[in-house]
Design a binder for these strands. Structure first.
Lengths: 192, 192, 192, 192
DNA sequence: TATGAATGAGACTTCATTCAT
DNA sequence: CATGAATGAAGTCTCATTCAT
């Protein structure tokens, strides 16, 4: 009753879980308040609106993750290592907080439309890294967007399968395989 | 009677477009009726409810596409050709009706939760084909779900990029590249 | 159920009465719907919002009345006759629809703030007429706003007394007296 | 204790200003607390409720002013002087505290409904004074309520114009003119 | 006395659905 | 089969008030 930040965190976690379970629209304020054990009005002391809650949950973590990826990749000097490290990071984070990453993964129109082109996201980081690798001749030239989409697809779809429990094992142990697959997608086409 | 089925088709296309643009929940009956130029009540002559409209649009096409894929793959006798053919088909269909395929692609919780395990979907067809290929030794053994996820990811994420206009070219011309990438993901791991 | 304009009129009259009885803010949508015998949602088929209902009720009649006053005064060629006619008109209208005129009379901040200076209101008409009369030397020079305020006060406060039932007789029979008093206010100061 | 009464006064002045600016209903406790620089709960140490705050602000000053008027008029022995003195007083007080007098002037239903007939108000004082003057033959007989309404209207509407900045000069210098106009309204009708 | 997080009743509004025409 | 006014349940949000600190 004193420490408002605990309540805010409680709301955030509760909302995250419900958003993932039922989707943002299908989750009502009453749902969140009920599960969190707070009054409906209390939510509005911490978030301006339901939309702003959904967006804050999304954008904060989405952008923070992109920044972490960017810092991480700077510690390596070639595409293969950068990619491997980023994938490992993604898998580790996903395992550590599957609810949060499922939310980011399954985020819909509502949130994605608010992402402006200037924002650095995981997608832009990945494209940048791939473009540099191509420029350095580490992998054959290809449309960067296409390359990024394929690599992203390999990793994200596995995460989606995990989120939907079609895959049940943790992702971290798979990260080497995923990195290898991604590398193959980028480099392998030319080698066969 | 011919008139009626034209109206139904008009509703279907209008709804599809709006569902893709704004999401199912954010699209109101009034939106659909307004754009289609019909009265709100008219929709209910053709569809039981908004949910049923969304579901019919989804399931009919989702399942029909799975069946087409399944028929198609039967015409080939090895995984590589099956995969190539399926991907080519997907790309062709996507280019032919991007709105419909975007709808299937971006379908939400609401629709996916109603997909029961018995239903044959593109995912199950793909898993079946991959499993057979592994059994026949065409590609190295691996968890089928993982393999399917990666392959699916390569193709779907490219389509997502297209749906979000991050890729602007048609998909069909890319299908060979996508098939090669997918094959590499399945087979290539072992070759290094 | 067919003629929507009857419903709109019903809502307007019901709201008007309640707004006068309890004030706009204290009147809820449920109040209006309850008294009018309609569903709450029905109101929104005819008015965008409660605010817009209050404003439409106010502005339409407020501006229409100003225009009627303006037309009326043009039929006379001197201030005294113009004033007398306008006051007679006001009284007649008030008696004919006391609820509506009470609403206009007691309209608060909420509505008055939305009246832009370009709009022609009863106040601006009155000021114009008085200014002309002064220019023609029909009454002694004085600050127009002050003159208008005093004249307006004589008439409106009597109407307020009537609205609050401190005066119970009809206003029309008083209009000659009111006009005489107003004339006295404008002309009389100098004559003593 | 001195501190506390300062806080109460701060709340009163802040609320008064906001009530005049936005109306009582549109002013929230948070508004008041925010502008006054106190916590929301603090208000309740000094006032039972928002309604009670609005009422105390209104009734205290409304009744005090009536009493002052009544005392004042007792110092004069004829209607004309009484009236003149009362109007001068009103103007002086208005100029001295325009916010407070605007609040009294524009007070809504909410407050006026709570004024019981036994309470002595400016209106009742005025009616009494006029009635006496008529009884003494100082002015022609007329319905007292009507006479009071007209006199009140002259003064109050000028104040309303001032409150809405349609008149910008101070009221006190106008009080002689106003008194003359009022006298004319009461006496003049018969003299022409 | 002061604080401000928490409360929860209730307001406004939306919108899928019905049904008389 | 088409219409569109009407419905009313349900959702989001506000805000006066309380109470533990």
């Amino acid at each position: 009753m004193r420490d408002g930040s605990k309540t805010k965190e409680l709301i955030a976690r509760t909302a995250l879980q419900l958003f993932v379970d039922k989707g943002v629209t299908a989750t009502t304020i009453r749902d969140i308040a009920g599960v969190a054990g707070i009054a409906e009005g209390t939510l509005y002391r911490h978030y301006e609106s339901k939309d702003q809650l959904a967006w804050e949950l999304f954008s904060t973590n989405y952008l923070a993750f992109a920044e972490e990826l960017d810092c991480l990749q700077e510690g390596y000097d070639n595409l293969k290592d950068k990619l491997t490290a980023m994938i490992r990071q993604f898998c580790t984070f996903f395992d550590r907080d599957p609810v949060l990453f499922s939310y980011l993964l399954l985020a819909q129109h509502g949130q994605l439309k608010k992402v402006t082109p200037e924002m650095e996201t995981a997608v832009t980081v990945l494209q940048k890294v791939i473009a540099q690798g191509m420029a350095r001749g580490e992998v054959p030239e290809m449309e960067v967007e296409l390359a990024a989409a394929m690599v992203l697809g390999v990793v994200l779809e596995v995460a989606v399968f995990k989120a939907y429990s079609r895959i049940t094992q943790d992702l971290a142990p798979l990260s080497e395989k995923l990195a290898a697959a991604c590398w193959c997608v980028l480099a392998g086409n030319g080698t066969h």
